[in-house]
Design a protein around this nucleic acid. Structure first.
Lengths: 342, 342
DNA sequence: AGCCGCTCATGAACCGGTAAAGCTAGTGAG
DNA sequence: CTCACTAGCTTTACCGGTTCATGAGCGGCT
């Protein structure tokens, strides 16, 4: 194209409309001080010239930006596979869109890298605030980021998020529901394939799992903590199915691992749900595509993202925000769970 | 936190280091004109005050921004499921990270909406350029966006991208390979479950499919064009398997639909690969998790994203860029394809 | 007529950087 | 000893908006 880039500025629009810069600014910001007639002339001129206010100039002058940050710290290959994030992002976007804001996205390799990134974003005034996800126990981000004064909302249970206002799903309750459901079907040997031990919500679910099992008088089966990838889920399932008194039901920490578990069962000739019940977490379309379809703990991830974003805007606006849960994941029984045979 | 927001500016750093604003700017941009000693003092002061240059001010002054745009136009539920995009994005990020740039991401509902979005992004100087994806035949974006002079790289075959420099995978060749492979196994009735007809690459693949079938003297099975969702893939598969002389092999346009197809085959008691061979596109981990594992046309999506981004930077730098293909997807045979029984 | 108050508009100051021109002391050549 | 030159730093003019104090014009009221 090699456009000589005839940069159009507010001055050109002002000249074209026969007014001053100030008038154009007033008109474009819906402020009083310009007559209807002038306003119309200004808009006509702007449209004619294809002008829109330069966002850098605007935010410099206004001392504010309309972008929020999201850094995700997971290996890329994994991210693609977990439907969770894209759906979460789409929830974020739905709120951003109505406020004409944008999302700055970055995939990072470590929590330390994320800390540095958030620091530059905030110090350089690139973002108005951030959504923090994937909290670990003793998360290294909380200290530096709180000190920084970064406006942020955390996704995760308040016990994990080190003072940041947070939005979370009550996983403990959901886990309990899952276990009780399987127990009610008659399962006694229930196993769990969880996410990485360091990850906060994995720990919460693990604890709730053990406690519920104990409360029901069931022995706490070894629950395997692994990664989040399908391959790790497959490996964990394989080892569970090979163990001496193998479980009759397995609860997974995401849907991908559950799909992998189903594959392993098929491969080993273990019939689902006759000999083995499987229960997924984070219900996505994937759970309805397999045969048998997968029972799952389902929740509204899109709405979750939207809610988090709304809270972030409150934080940015300086309101006093209290942490609050969103709807607890609820059980959607499908064909992969049934009473154990025999 | 209610930080009284003690905004630190370059002036404060200059004062602290006992130099002028100009010196600080020079130091921070690695330009000559400041002694090593002074430079050190400046950095010390900046670190002390936790200062980083305000990005709005910087880009206003420099007349440039370090952000690129990506708008994706697909229903959110779908996006989450297609591993493609996240992996593509991670490829983009890998290049952005080394140049200290950011990605502005937006999910939009229609191509018209995307056009408007790109226009504001560019006119407001929020982005230095864009990556355009999912080209349709007679894509409504090309006209307005070319006119706008937006620096952009298109993902898709040059015949689709209306003059934008593009990066693409040679799907026609890949489709031919897929069909020849199945034919070589002995399949005569090969069907195809494609993406939406309007989508450019679906059309290309459809055409290549028909041509290759014809060249091999096989009758062009009705190939179903549908959406990209698993449910649509399932429906399409079901209808193919119920047809009079059902196909012995099916080629899918993504991996999700192939997984769904596998589910349908299981549900209908059709054995894979004995009675039916399935071949996926966009090989992801998903293909290795099912039982049987899915044969797929595999390509390096991460590298694809990285390459596209590199080309975009060339475009932004004003270089004359020629469209070029990246590696053609290649066949990874797994357990879902075999010679037809009987 | 004089004064008030209102609407509509202007101009200059500012936001926080960058860039180019200007200044100053020190240095080496002639 | 002068002069050109350079390294090192300062000064100043922008970049393209927003905001606020100021003022012109005008109708109504006393």
């Amino acid at each position: 194209m090699s456009t000589p880039t005839e940069r159009v500025t507010i001055k050109d629009v002002a000249a074209a409309a026969g007014v001053s810069k100030g008038a154009v600014s007033l008109a474009f910001n819906d402020k009083p001080g310009v007559s209807e007639a002038t306003r119309a002339r200004i808009f006509a001129a702007a449209r004619q010239l294809g002008w829109a206010p330069n966002s850098s100039a605007r935010s410099l002058s206004r001392q504010s930006v309309d972008t929020i940050g999201l850094a995700i710290c997971r290996p890329a290959r994994l991210l693609g596979l977990e439907p969770f994030y894209m759906e979460f992002i789409s929830g974020i976007e739905s709120v951003l869109a109505e406020r004409n804001c944008s999302l700055l996205l970055r995939l990072v390799g470590s929590l330390e890298e994320e800390t540095r990134l958030q620091q530059s974003w905030w110090r350089e005034r690139q973002i108005a605030g951030s959504i923090l996800v994937d909290f670990h126990q003793e998360d290294p981000r909380t200290g530096p980021l709180r000190e920084l004064g970064l406006p942020a909302v955390a996704v995760g249970h308040p016990t994990l998020t080190g003072g940041f206002p947070s939005v979370w799903t009550d996983d403990a309750v959901a886990v309990a529901e899952a276990v009780r459901y399987l127990a009610a079907l008659g399962h006694r040997r229930i196993a769990r394939v969880g996410g990485p031990a360091g990850l906060g919500h994995s720990a919460i679910r693990a604890k709730a799992f053990e406690e519920t099992m104990a409360a029901l008088g069931l022995d706490g089966r070894p629950h395997v903590e692994t990664g989040f990838s399908g391959e790790e889920g497959a490996r964990a399932t394989r080892s569970l199915l090979l163990s001496a008194d193998r479980p009759t039901a397995i609860v997974y920490d995401n849907d991908l691992m559950a799909v992998a578990g189903l594959g392993v069962a098929a491969e080993m000739g273990v019939s689902v749900p006759d000999e083995l019940s499987l229960l997924a977490w984070d219900d996505s379309q994937l759970c309805r595509l397999t045969h048998p379809t997968l029972s799952a703990m389902s929740h509204d991830v899109h709405g979750f993202g939207a809610q988090v974003t709304r809270v972030l805007f409150d934080v940015i606006a300086g309101q006093d925000v209290v942490s609050r849960p969103v709807a607890t994941p609820s059980l959607v029984p499908r064909a992969s769970t049934a009473p154990p045979r025999g």
